[in-house]
Write a protein that binds this DNA or RNA. Sequence first.
RNA 1: GACCCCAUCGUCCAGAGGCCUAGGACUUCGGACUUUCGAUCCGACAACAGGGGUUCGAAUCCCCUUGGGGUCGCCA
Length: 442
Amino acid sequence: MMVEKKVRVRFAPSPTGHLHLGGARTALFNWLFARCTGGTFILRIEDTDRARSTPEAISAIIDGLKWLGLDWDEGPVYQSGRRERHAKAAEELISMGRAYRAEGKLGPQQAVIFRVPDEKVAFDDMVYGRIEFDAGLLDDLVLMKSDGSPAYNFACVIDDADMGISHVIRGEDHISNTPKQLVLYRALGLEPPRLAHVPLILGPDGSRLSKRHGATSLSQYRSEGLLPDALRNYLALLGWSSGDDQELFSKEELVERFSIEGISKKSAIFDPEKLGWMNSCYIRSTSDEELLEEALPFLERAGFHGIASKKGTLLAAIGLIKERVRSLVEVPGAIDFFISEELSFDGEAVRKHLSSPGSLDIIQRLAGMLQGLESWDAGSIESSVRTLASEMGVKAAAVIHPTRVAVTGRKIGPGLFDLMEVLGREKTVLRLKEATDKFGEV
RNA sequence: GACCCCAUCGUCCAGAGGCCUAGGACUUCGGACUUUCGAUCCGACAACAGGGGUUCGAAUCCCCUUGGGGUCGCCA
């Protein structure tokens, strides 16, 4: 094998908005490539457009990367801090006769424009293969704008070269920028990095993913209750494949299995449905402790405060509901009856299971039995229920359904006996009695 | 319009000339299990854009057509 240059890659977003899915995936691929080659991953903030760059956007990028678990080894490097370097490089090109000054359109200064040579440029893209362009078709290129800031293609070339970037992994929308950058590398006598363009992420209608397709920012997915592991996994699979049928990859497995050869050339349509499924897989396989940790902000947002003292109940409750929620936002609604004092009843559930004198009689009797139960565990509770059913000559379901509604307020939820065990004898019996009173006299 | 890229089930991927009567996953629809929901397990529906080549043989290679996407900013 050839001795390759040490891998140095970078993620270079412009802080002009939120960190969107496409950017996150580009970051992920760069990070994976660095990690699987023992290379260096650098974060560079392309904030040359001072008017549109915001501190909020910068922290959104940083928070987003951290949340996804993508740590960087160098940076953040702020492009705005390298202005002198850019200006100097532009001067050099002028003195070489490769660039000229022109009347400014933005500010009082003169812009520096690169005289694009009439030549052919070609490169071997690691994803798309050989791509050729006729640079003669290109217009002259702005290097320095008349407000004194460097133009994107120029700053990008100078910075990548200065930072010793070995591989540029970026979105396919940059393919058409590549010839512009290549002629600059050539004019500066620099060797360009290896290039790998990754296919775009499209919305359901096949056009580039954008706001009108709904949630596109990382922070939105975070607040919608996605686990970072799930989103990372899903994003990795959008445009990359390990080659076999495996779909669930831990971060470590991803690093182990990742390769640029596995990146597809075809742009991929983002499917929230599958993301949701994947999230449910991760929720199920996360430990109760960790899941509670992740769900805490959602519980607080839903109005559950001061619940730290109920940790034991919460953990047990989480364990019971985690296989029936797809996202963290569903957690509060799924466990509220465990922790709130006041039960809210689903009208239809009551109508269906608690409106007959028979069912009220049943739960009243059950309350009595449960009160005297020697051991409070799911198994004992179940035998009580089944015993009561056979004594009364009814099906177990005739006891179970009214009981569930009396105890939880609704007709769906975790297994009744488990749920009652977690809820505790006191609350369970109380709720059975309360329901008898509440719905008994109408 | 010019330039560039892409093209397998509705969607994400597998398939790198014979293993393909095209495989997996999501979704949908059946069924099983079950106290409900869910989970799980079984099963079903569903694709090589079209046309020419090359070859004994093509989803895989080449060309054309069609379709889709991207870029054409002193935005990045």
